[in-house]
Computed example of a mutant assay.
Amino acid sequence: MAGIQTSTVQMDDGVHLHVKLMGNDEKRPKPLLIAVHAAPGLVTLAEPEAAFAFLSDNFRVLVFDGRGSGESDITGSYTHDRWIRDIDNLRRWAGAEKFVLAGHSYGGTICLDYAVRHGDRLSGLILRNTWTHGIQLMMTALAAVLTDPRLKVDVARQLRVWTGALRDDRDYEEAMPEILPIYSPPGDSSSQMLQFAAYHSATQNFAFNHNMPRFDVRHQLKDIKVPTLVIVGRHDLITPVVFSEEIARSIPDSSLAIFEHSGHNPAGDESQKFQKTVLEFLTTSVL
């Protein structure tokens, strides 16, 4: 593996983001991949780092804590417009005209918005366990956590999570352990989700009370022309297979990979197959 560079990068509005760039090699220029983490206000760059570090022999892999997450500034705005500008700032900071964009779960929605607006800047798109319609996701996720027999939840607290009405960081911290099993395939309750956690309830609240009610790219998917890999776990109850089937059916140059033994995170549940699938896509469609 080539060098790993950890940096604090200033955005155009003065906010500082915590960034890690893997595979940087001044002697051998490599294409850039930017990976966007899931769950703003909860998950950190450690999640996409774990998923995509294996590519650093062939790519420069850039991961970052989104604003309001991890070690980045807890400063808004947290809109998708702002996320998109941040991604473009990081693209320019890394010196790339075109790049591969990858997103997991909520990060995938930001990637879809980016691809709809700036597809000409992409050489590839990787979407993992994501969705196209915010309200549909909110209702699906809430229904899943309230009806799954494995879970014993505080109903009012889960309603606050999925509608963006958390009281404070402690409220968020108490809500997430209640639902961990729902992210894993049957018979496996060892979700890795919270090993990446850093609770910032204000970020989560904005994502689900402002961004998600406005997010809907269903009718714009046909306009995404970049080669796209769509990944989903067969047992994902938060973003079920039908969500990814819709994406793959609607984006012209796309392929769908269903991981039969995975839940919400195929990169962790079936890591070897995930790495093989991603590398084959990048080798045949991007490199």
Rank of each mutant, 00 (worst) to 15 (best):
L166G: 09
W93C: 08
T79F: 05
A115R: 03
S69F: 11
N129P: 09
C111R: 13
L151D: 08
D168H: 15
M138V: 07
W93E: 13
D86R: 00
G119W: 10
R167T: 15
W162L: 01
G95A: 05
D154E: 02
D81N: 14
A143F: 00
A175M: 14
I179T: 03
A143I: 00
G134D: 06
L90T: 10
I126P: 02
N89I: 01
T109N: 09
P177M: 12
I74A: 11
G134I: 09
R160S: 00
F64T: 10
R92S: 10
P181V: 03
R121Q: 13
G107A: 12
H118G: 02
D168T: 09
D154Q: 01
I126A: 05
S69M: 11
T147I: 01
A102Y: 06
F64Y: 15
R160P: 00
P177A: 00
V153I: 14
C111K: 07
R150T: 13
G119Y: 05
Y78A: 02
K152D: 06
I110E: 06
I179F: 12
T79P: 13
D113Q: 14
N89H: 10
G76T: 04
D171M: 02
E97G: 05
P149W: 12
T132R: 09
E178T: 14
V63N: 01
F99S: 01
A175H: 15
W131N: 07
L137F: 14
S123Y: 11
T109W: 10
R117C: 03
H118F: 08
L112A: 02
D168G: 11
R67P: 07
Y183H: 14
S123Q: 13
L90M: 13
G124W: 08
A115W: 11
P177K: 07
G164T: 12
W131R: 15
N129E: 12
G103E: 10
R157N: 02
Q158D: 07
A115Y: 04
R117M: 00
I87N: 01
K152C: 12
I87A: 00
W131E: 02
D120Y: 04
Y78S: 00
V145M: 08
E97M: 03
H104K: 08
D88T: 08
S77G: 01
G95R: 11
T109Q: 15
H133E: 03
R150V: 09
L151Y: 14
